[in-house]
């Protein structure tokens, strides 16, 4: 019930941004209040995780997949100036024991040879990959739940098609920080009660 609130009762109060204007996307958003600048609270239909959702993002309906509360695939198209898109794959059965294989497959999908940067957080560990050489920059992360099974393969693509390479170069730090901030916004919902709400 709580989920329906944004679109049904507080219609007028909702922010006038692409995410809320798109009916399909709106259904994933919990409230019109920003969680960080330009981002709103998104809850997965699996009930297993939340994240910050970009105001100018739209969930691509054709690409959305869900399998019970076991796995989910979300693709987000971005409409901001340099934004491109995000992809989120969630698998509830991923565990730390499988990490080696998960990271290997993820690297293969990304086309990345190097090492992951390991970032410890209270409730999760982020294995971060910055791939900034191309015009289309790719920031990837495997986000592992520390309290329970479950893991997320997330990708944030940012495009710089400015002809002046120096400008793109200047954006580098900002983009990386933006990507990391987004990745840190993921929280796993470990409470089993969430499922029974459905």
């Amino acid at each position: 019930m709580e989920k329906k609130q944004p679109k049904e009762t507080k219609q007028e109060a909702l922010p006038d941004v692409e995410a809320f204007n798109d009916e399909y996307t709106r259904d994933f958003l919990l409230s019109g209040e920003e969680v960080m600048e330009g981002f709103y609270r998104f809850q997965s239909k699996t009930g297993k995780y939340e994240m910050a959702f970009p105001a100018d993002g739209i969930i691509v309906e054709q690409a959305y997949r869900i399998k019970d509360s076991k796995s989910e695939e979300v693709s987000i198209g971005l409409h901001d100036e340099r934004g491109f898109g995000m992809d989120i794959f969630f698998f509830s059965y991923y565990t730390p024991e499988d990490r080696e294989g998960i990271l290997r497959r993820f690297k293969s999908r990304l086309g990345y040879d190097g090492e992951f940067e390991e970032i410890e957080k209270l409730d999760k560990t982020i294995y971060f990959v910055p791939m900034e050489d191309d015009e289309l920059k790719t920031y990837g992360a495997y986000i592992e739940n520390k309290q329970n099974s479950g893991g997320l393969e997330v990708v944030y693509n940012i495009k710089c098609d400015n002809e002046d390479e120096q400008i793109c170069e200047d954006y580098k730090e900002e983009d990386k920080a933006k990507a990391l901030k987004w990745m840190d916004s993921f929280t796993f919902i470990n409470d089993k009660g969430v499922e029974s709400d459905e």
């Binding site: 971005l78 898109g85 693509n157």
Partner: peptide, 13 residues
């Protein structure tokens, strides 16, 4: 995805 973007300049949508 990168190759498609390079060739056709389109995003997810």
């Amino acid at each position: 995805k990168k190759a498609v973007e390079k060739e056709l300049s389109v995003n997810q949508q």
